[in-house]
C-alpha cells in the first residue's frame, strides 16, 4: 500500500492478509468500498504503537468488524433508531423521570422472569456473559459444557428476550 514505509508486526500482517481482510470487508457490507475501508484500517494500525497481542490476525478482523459496525450505525439510522428506541421505551411523549424508572423496572422484572423460565443453565450463561463480562470459553469451563452449548444457551436466552422486546414494542 505505502511502498516507501517499512511496516512491521501488525501492519505487515495487514498487508500479508490483505486478500482475506478484503473478502471479509466486502461481505460484511463494504462491497465496492472494501479497499477504502482497508486503507482506513491500515492508517489506524500504523498510527498506533506496537503492543503485545495474543492473536494479531484476530485483532485485525475485530478492528475491521468494529469499523463496519460503526459505519452501519452512523450511516442509516442513528437518528431513526434512537427515535424508535425512545418511543418504544418511553412512549412518544416523554413521561416524567419517575414514570420512566417505574416502566424500566417493571420491564426488567419481566425480563428476569423470562430469563429464569429458560432454565438455570441458560440463565447462568446469560448472566455470566452479559452482566459479568465473562468470555464464552470460561463459561463453558465453569458449566462443564462445550463452547457451542454455551452459544446455544445464549441464543435461547436472547431469542426469548427478543420476543419480550417485541411485546414491549407493541405495547
Amino acid at each position: 500500500m505505502e511502498p516507501d514505509s517499512k511496516p512491521d508486526g501488525i501492519a505487515r500482517l495487514l498487508v500479508e492478509e490483505r486478500a482475506r481482510l478484503l473478502r471479509f470487508l466486502a461481505a460484511r457490507g463494504a462491497g465496492d468500498e472494501a479497499e477504502d475501508v482497508l486503507h482506513e484500517l491500515w492508517q489506524r494500525v500504523v498510527a498506533t504503537p506496537s503492543q503485545p497481542l495474543a492473536d494479531p490476525l484476530a485483532y485485525l478482523f475485530r478492528a475491521a468488524e468494529n469499523v463496519m459496525r460503526d459505519r452501519s450505525r452512523s450511516a442509516i439510522s442513528r437518528e431513526r433508531r434512537q427515535q424508535a428506541w425512545h418511543e418504544a421505551s418511553f412512549g412518544a411523549h416523554e413521561e416524567a423521570t419517575g414514570e420512566r424508572v417505574l416502566i424500566a423496572r417493571q420491564r426488567l422484572r419481566e425480563a428476569e422472569a423470562v430469563l429464569a423460565a429458560q432454565g438455570p443453565r441458560v440463565s447462568t450463561a446469560f448472566r455470566r456473559y452479559r452482566l459479568d463480562g465473562v468470555g464464552q470459553a470460561v463459561i463453558a469451563r465453569e458449566l462443564g459444557v462445550s463452547v457451542s452449548s454455551v452459544e446455544k444457551d445464549l441464543q435461547k436466552a436472547y431469542r426469548a428476550l427478543s420476543r419480550l422486546r417485541e411485546k414491549f414494542d407493541a405495547e
Binding site: W85, A104, R105, L108, Y158, S162, R165
Partner: peptide
C-alpha cells in the same frame, strides 16, 4: 436486537 436486549438490563432494580 442483541443491543436492545442488553439495554433491558441497564436498569437497576
Amino acid at each position: 436486537d442483541l443491543e436492545g436486549v442488553d439495554a433491558l438490563f441497564d436498569v437497576p432494580p
